[in-house]
Nucleic acid binder design. Structure first.
Length: 359
DNA sequence: AAAATTTGACCTAG
DNA sequence: CTAGGTCAAATTTT
């Protein structure tokens, strides 16, 4: 009950923070890569900030017990965002299953919310031999493969493993580059609504090699925890984020960009500016924003459903500590209502936090 | 046995 | 009709 929801918040929060961390690392990598486009970095920055915003929100919410977490989040947006987006269930395949009578209704509903989901492409190249490196921290299940006209390699389709359990409609497509077999273009569609931001089971990263699935030269002797999945980007792995969701959204990212990391701005300013930002709340629960969503009554499943895959995972200690200490040094804890007790230790005894002044 | 992948059929937009 | 995307049964992997 109480404990349950609490831990739900904690999980979400931690998930967000971790994601932000990972993204930050990607950004760093991207920055160090000679060929990083500003678009690319901007995109990453935006995502990072999003994560932190959400985390902050969660903190806020957990501070004020009145509001029921999610609802609160959904309502928070005062008047700024959701101008052009808020595109819930834009899924493409709801045709087959019930095309009897529901279809009609569904269609009318769909018209309303038909917009498109986030969509971005990144190019990943593993120039060394590190395949399976592309782990984005999510669990994907392959559901199809298609030969594409003119492309030498087939395109594979993945969707979130938790699609059914948590109605997470995120999907991605992976296409190997024609000439450079080392480069994969990964197109992400939709946002993850599942509770597995990046922490979850050790992802057996094996995106797209149907031709040669490298056996496992694995060593399961890692004394520590498994770790090393997503972010352990080998230095020669290039991630190239490219597009985007063609919208003006990217035009003016944020006002608090560069500052936010080293030392976020102080309290109120930060919070208010984060509300000014846009569309994030819209992804939190599409269904909340558009009741029309229909059949699914199971978005945001009850806490009970999420097992405790919580966070006993793999954050590379070194990195984590790095970031934490960085924050630490900046000393001003920006969050006003920061009484949140994040007992990571309880959740995960092995958690690498040695940082004394953690938070 | 359960979960994930393969793969050809099926569906829809253009 | 074609190409791209998805389904779902069969198959493989865990």
């Amino acid at each position: 009950m109480d404990t349950a929801s609490k831990s739900w918040e904690q999980k979400s929060l931690i998930g967000e923070i971790i994601e932000g961390m990972e993204l930050a690392q990607q950004l760093r990598l991207s920055l160090s890569t000679t060929s990083s486009s500003s678009e690319n970095t901007e995109f990453l920055v935006q995502r990072i900030l999003t994560s932190y915003e959400k985390a902050l929100l969660l903190l806020q919410l957990s501070g004020s017990p009145q509001t029921s977490n999610v609802d609160a989040i959904a309502n928070v947006p005062p008047e700024s965002r959701m101008s052009a987006n808020s595109s819930p269930r834009g899924d493409d395949y709801n045709h087959r299953s019930f095309k009897d009578q529901q279809e009609l209704q569904d269609v009318s509903k769909k018209r309303k919310i038909m917009a498109k989901w986030t969509d971005h492409v990144i190019r990943v190249s593993s120039e060394n031999g590190i395949e399976g490196s592309h782990e984005d921290g999510h669990n994907w299940r392959k559901y199809g493969q298609k030969d594409i006209l003119g492309a030498k390699h087939p395109r594979s389709y993945y969707r979130c493993t938790f699609r059914n359990t948590q109605s997470c409609w995120a999907t991605k497509q992976v296409q190997r580059s024609d000439e450079d077999p080392t480069i994969f273009e990964i197109t992400y569609k939709g946002k993850h609504t599942c509770s597995h931001g990046s922490n979850s089971v050790p992802p057996p990263p094996s995106p797209e090699q149907q031709e040669k699935k490298r056996p496992k030269h694995e060593n399961m002797s890692q004394p520590q925890q498994s770790q090393g999945n997503q972010m352990s980007f080998p230095t020669n792995l290039r991630v190239d984020t490219e597009n985007l969701e063609g919208r003006e959204k990217m035009a003016s990212p944020f006002s608090f960009t560069s500052t936010s990391f080293g030392c976020m701005m102080s309290g109120d300013d930060f919070l208010s500016s984060m509300f000014d930002n846009d569309n994030f709340f819209s992804n939190i629960s599409p269904s909340l924003l558009s009741p029309a969503a229909g059949e699914s009554n199971y978005y945001l499943e009850p806490p009970s459903q999420m097992r405790n895959i919580a966070l006993n995972e793999q954050l590379s200690e070194s990195d984590l500590t790095e970031i934490l200490s960085a924050n630490n040094s900046s000393t001003n804890s920006p969050i006003p209502a920061m009484d949140f007790t994040l007992d990571l230790v309880e959740i995960n005894p092995n958690f690498p936090f040695d940082t004394p002044g953690f938070f």
